[in-house]
Design a protein around this nucleic acid. Structure first.
Length: 463
DNA sequence: GGTAAACTTAACAAT
DNA sequence: ATTGTTCCAGTTTACC
């Protein structure tokens, strides 16, 4: 299957793959952690990596190769999903992969058992949330969040800075707990790092082999965390079972992962070149697979109130809203299509669900409101992050007033939807890289996390 | 018309 | 302080 011609990059890549294969075959362990680095003095906390990890329980290693690399046309009969074929770009890192469950102890990059307390706290957290819920009857208990955020009070305490993973952070989420302030960050190597805000310890795991595209805490069971990856896998980190279980294994890269509040058994994920798939845990397979876009879907976001409405953003230059009740049926059309001049990196509903914010490489943030999102505001914003910085994605704060997005000068721009402009930039000498991915803590107004291509996480808090 | 190459960008390690 | 490496995005340009 020797390719006729190789670019310099491809040649190097194949060389890397070959070396990886040799090493993996020889050691039967995951790739060794990158060396611990010296950080800018602003950053005091970091993960620690075990200097050398002896091979522990041996897990089966499977040589994972796409049909294409085996010389079989991807659309031929060999494929199990004959009904739908997504002519997606060739999947990345499709060489060696562990396809079964991975014990957390094997994926853990710290010293043996030093994550014991962390695992137990996750399990304890989920039990606590459960009992509180039982005591208070039903989901009705959900504390109503006060929305009056005083922008001037946002503060970056140097204590609230840490390097949570090595390398570029591609995804980051707050744990949705009222008690514990914790973030989980995923990077381009397939690592997931956990950090209790303000504390010094980092817990770093390596459950995937490629960039992490989704992190999803189960709201009513915080010890269960879904992760999706460019390697085509969805895993479920289960702290009780102490494994990263394998949930879904597809041929295509997965670019986004989401879940509507009222469908705890279903996962919606962006697969291949424009596909949106629905995984149903009750039947253990995908219940739907639709081709919604002409290029990859970058985000999937459900309307907070009307959970059958979902917004997708795509590199095909559009964002769309869809009605899940009619999607895939005879009327396979979007409710609305929001057009940009370049690829669209995100489309998020505001907390009330009344507005939608899109971010595009055409250097605009689109803010749509009105009865059917037909009113459009366009705010200029430099979104040319280039190749090494994860693309910007404007996120909503805790009400419909403010949108937060990183800028190329290591700041965080705050866009007011009322004033239709950037009204403030959060800056700090402690920030040593461009914060490109964000999450707002839904359980605490004013707690905003920004993540960089250097693996740092910065947490602003409202005093 | 289609594909390959080139260009942009910042962070960090090594020198 | 400077240089080299990263390399899985997105887009434009060059070249069959």
């Amino acid at each position: 299957m020797a390719p006729q011609k190789l670019t310099e990059y491809e040649r190097k890549r194949l060389e890397n793959i070959r070396r990886n294969n040799e090493m993996m075959a020889a050691l039967k362990v995951h790739t060794k952690a990158t060396e611990l680095s010296i950080l800018p003095k602003a950053v005091t906390k970091s993960y620690s990596v075990k200097s050398e990890k002896k091979p522990k329980t041996e897990t089966p290693i499977v040589i994972r190769r796409s049909l294409r690399t085996r010389g079989i046309p991807p659309d031929s009969k060999g494929s199990d999903s004959s009904t739908l074929t997504r002519n997606s770009p060739q999947k990345i890192n499709d060489f060696v992969q562990n396809l079964g469950p991975i014990p957390m102890k094997d994926a853990y990059k710290g010293d043996d058992d030093s994550d014991r307390s962390f695992i137990e706290s996750l399990v304890g957290m989920s039990n606590k949330e459960f009992s509180e819920e039982e005591l208070n009857g039903s989901a009705k208990k959900k504390k109503k969040i006060e929305c009056s955020l005083e922008l001037e009070s946002l503060n970056l305490d140097p204590e609230n800075i840490a390097r949570v993973v090595p390398g570029r952070i591609t995804q980051m989420r707050f744990c949705p707990s009222n008690d514990v302030k914790m973030v989980a960050a995923g990077n381009k190597f397939g690592d997931i790092g956990f950090w209790n805000v303000g504390e010094s310890e980092i817990f770093l795991y390596h459950p995937h082999q490629a960039p992490i595209s989704g992190i999803l805490f189960q709201p009513h069971c915080l010890s269960k965390i879904y992760t999706s990856c460019y390697d085509g896998l969805i895993r479920l980190m289960d702290a009780e079972k102490e494994i990263f279980d394998m949930v879904y294994n597809g041929e295509n890269s997965i670019y986004a992962l989401s879940q509507p509040k009222n469908e705890v058994n279903c996962l919606y994920f962006a697969e291949g070149s424009g596909g949106l798939s629905v995984w149903d845990n009750r039947i253990g397979k995908c219940s739907s697979q639709w081709d919604l876009h002409e290029s990859r879907i970058n985000t999937i976001d459900f309307s907070p109130q009307t959970t059958h409405i979902v917004a997708t953003s795509s590199s095909d230059g559009t964002a769309c809203t869809w009605d899940l009740r009619s999607i895939g049926g005879p009327k396979h059309t979007s409710l609305r299509t929001f057009t940009h001049k370049r690829s669209v990196q995100s489309a998020y509903f505001s907390p009330s669900g009344c507005s939608l914010a899109t971010t595009s490489l055409d250097n605009t943030i689109g803010i749509y409101g009105g009865v059917n999102l037909e009113d459009k505001i366009s705010v200029y914003h430099d979104n040319q992050t280039g190749r090494w910085i994860s693309t910007f994605r404007a996120i909503w704060g805790w009400d419909n007033s403010y949108i937060f997005i990183g800028n190329m000068k290591r700041g965080v721009d705050v866009v007011s939807t009322v004033q239709r402009a950037t009204i403030k930039t959060l800056q700090s000498p402690h920030i040593s890289a461009i914060p490109c991915r964000f999450d707002a803590n839904s359980c605490e107004v004013g707690m905003l996390a920004g993540a960089t291509s250097g693996g740092q996480v910065y947490i602003w808090t409202s005093s």
